[in-house]
């Protein structure tokens, strides 16, 4: 006869992985370029990039909005998470953070264009807080799912914030290169930020791998998937290309703009595949339950 009566389609696909990546990249890019107004000091090297990065962040937010709305079964109801706000749902908070962050970025950019420098600090500060909350909520969205054991870890929100810092460094670095605004101080700062974020990513990578290696039956099924059909994405693209190679380039190579930008781009590739693997491997063990 048959062994199973039903097969379940996993609820979240590539749209969510791309959204998590883009929204994290956009939010942390804004946090970086708002830092001259929020923190000042060494962060002032980001000042020449403020306007162009803020514009690019708005473009990324627009792409994220389209991805989110089109992923819904009822796209016309996209405002419902705000209208019928549910405080225990990460998605409701995410919708709120997303809208408020967009308002902050528009406000920050407008204040810059209109020369209202007194508004830059409060808007930058509010935007920075929301910029941290946005990737944090994407991780919380997974962590809150107690049914999916790979996701149900407090490390996931922290990991998503750190991955967002790496991808933001790539975006800002690329933008500086395209605009010819790179200088030694900027390169050194991005290099130091990247080294920190990549080291934390490596620690969390090993920690998560150990957790599931010593884990429950479902976590071991996830590990089996990671070691089989997701092995290239996890071990090659995420670990080697996305973490070890850029770390090696930054620690051992010359601290040139091209080298730092190259390392940043590789780390951004890893930041995407890491999320992608977590999203996919977290869902498939339940497909036949």
């Amino acid at each position: 006869m048959f062994e199973y009566m039903q097969f379940n389609i996993s609820p979240w696909g590539w749209e969510l992985a791309v959204y998590f990546f883009l929204v994290g990249m956009a939010s942390m890019s804004f946090a970086m370029v708002a830092a001259p107004n929020v923190i000042g000091g060494a962060m002032s090297v980001f000042e020449p990039l403020q306007r162009s990065t803020s514009m690019l962040v708005l473009v990324l937010l627009a792409i994220c909005s389209v991805l989110l709305i089109m992923d819904l079964g009822q796209p016309s109801r996209f405002l419902y998470p705000l209208i019928y706000f549910h405080a225990s749902s990460p998605l409701s908070w995410g919708s709120l953070f997303f809208v408020l962050f967009g308002i902050c970025v528009v406000g920050f950019l407008s204040a810059q264009i209109m020369g209202k420098s007194s508004l830059l600090k409060p808007l930058g500060l509010a935007g920075t807080v929301l910029a941290v909350l946005l990737p944090l909520y994407t991780g919380w969205d997974l962590m809150a799912q107690q049914a999916r054991e790979l996701w149900h870890s407090p490390a996931i929100p922290l990991l998503f914030v750190v991955l967002s810092i790496s991808s933001a460094a790539a975006l800002v670095s690329l933008l500086a290169m395209v605009q010819g605004k790179q200088n030694e101080n900027l390169t050194t700062l991005i290099r130091n930020i990247l080294i920190c974020s990549l080291l934390v990513t490596l620690i969390l990578f090993v920690a998560e791998w150990l957790r599931i290696s010593y884990g429950t039956a479902e976590e071991m099924q996830a590990l089996a998937l990671i070691n089989s059909e997701l092995s290239t994405r996890f071990w090659v693209i995420t670990l080697i290309v996305g973490i070890l190679a850029p770390l090696g380039m930054l620690l051992m190579g010359p601290s040139t703009p091209i080298m730092v930008t190259g390392a940043a781009v590789l780390s951004a590739v890893g930041a995407y595949t890491f999320r992608d693997v977590i999203i996919v491997a977290g869902q498939l063990p339940m497909s036949f339950y």
Binding site: W12, D71, R77, P81, Y84, D141, A144, Q145, A147, Y289
Partner: peptide, 23 residues
């Protein structure tokens, strides 16, 4: 009338008891 089909509930359910109705 309120559901937006974000499928968070599908992801949250440990029992695979939920589905999306075709349009």
């Amino acid at each position: 009338e309120r559901c937006i089909a974000c499928r968070t509930c599908v992801a949250a359910c440990p029992y695979n008891a939920r589905h999306v109705l075709p349009t």
